[in-house]
Write a protein that binds this DNA or RNA. Sequence first.
DNA 1: TCCATTTCTATTGATATCAATGTATTTAGT
DNA 2: ACTAAATACATTGATATCAATAGAAATGGA
Lengths: 148, 148
Amino acid sequence: MSNSIEIPFSTTLMVRDTCLCLHVQRAARALARLFDDALRPAGLTNGQFSLMMSLNRPEPPPMGPVAALLAMDQTTLTAALKPLQRKGWVKVMENPRDRRGRLLSLTTEGKAVLARALPIWESTHAMIDGKLPDGSVARLRQDLQALS
Amino acid sequence: MSNSIEIPFSTTLMVRDTCLCLHVQRAARALARLFDDALRPAGLTNGQFSLMMSLNRPEPPPMGPVAALLAMDQTTLTAALKPLQRKGWVKVMENPRDRRGRLLSLTTEGKAVLARALPIWESTHAMIDGKLPDGSVARLRQDLQALS
DNA sequence: TCCATTTCTATTGATATCAATGTATTTAGT
DNA sequence: ACTAAATACATTGATATCAATAGAAATGGA
């Protein structure tokens, strides 16, 4: 006996259509592929581009605020820095004011890589802008910001 | 000599504020954490919940369409199925009509796990809905769909 | 039928992601 | 100054993600 616990197919369709988490994950994967493809000639992934761009500041930031800006776990940032350090694009140094902390900065070569990637970002982003209805991109950004 | 190639800080701020890819990745990470936390008592991550829900169909689907539905690489789906198979929640069988292919289905226990997770999804989603302005969630879904 | 092409999936290698945990350092309270 | 608590990162282990590649089976054209 024992009726097995079943979710109706109609519920499945409802969840698929309405789940915001699923929709965001889908879009995240699709956009990541799009930017990864575009940025490949520059030797960067979309995540590496965003991370390095966030390090292009007058003063080298510590890790915590950078992780918060990117809405990622601090351990994820530690891992993401590894390949960039290996390539000599990012420098991680001890914070003289707080020896627990690290300060992150782009190397000269890192800045050059980022500068070569920038026009690719611009054209890719313009392409997306063009494909979406006018104004929807700005609206989308606002809505997304409310989630993170 | 050689002036190093620098991107102005103002450009960095512009990219940070406008990059749709970054905004989507940020929201994706934040939402993933939120649902992962909520679903943890059910033993599922947000991705596993979405995948298993997409398998709750009258007829077991092959892998290709499932990967397309989730907008993920086919190799990602292969990997994502591994832990679910190990736990006995998903069954992967050869397609008798096409011996290259596989058919994916939930086991009885898988269906039970999914059924226990459903109320968690409902309450978590309702919580998000409540925190966002009226109507913005539906609009957001539409905009995201245009991207994937 | 035979063969080239296409389709469907798996494997490998690299990076991304987070939970759990540990270590070193700073801060705050006394 | 001393100590407990908080803070900033790193490490480990598991899963997620995709590119490149390879294998097997189906399909289509001659």
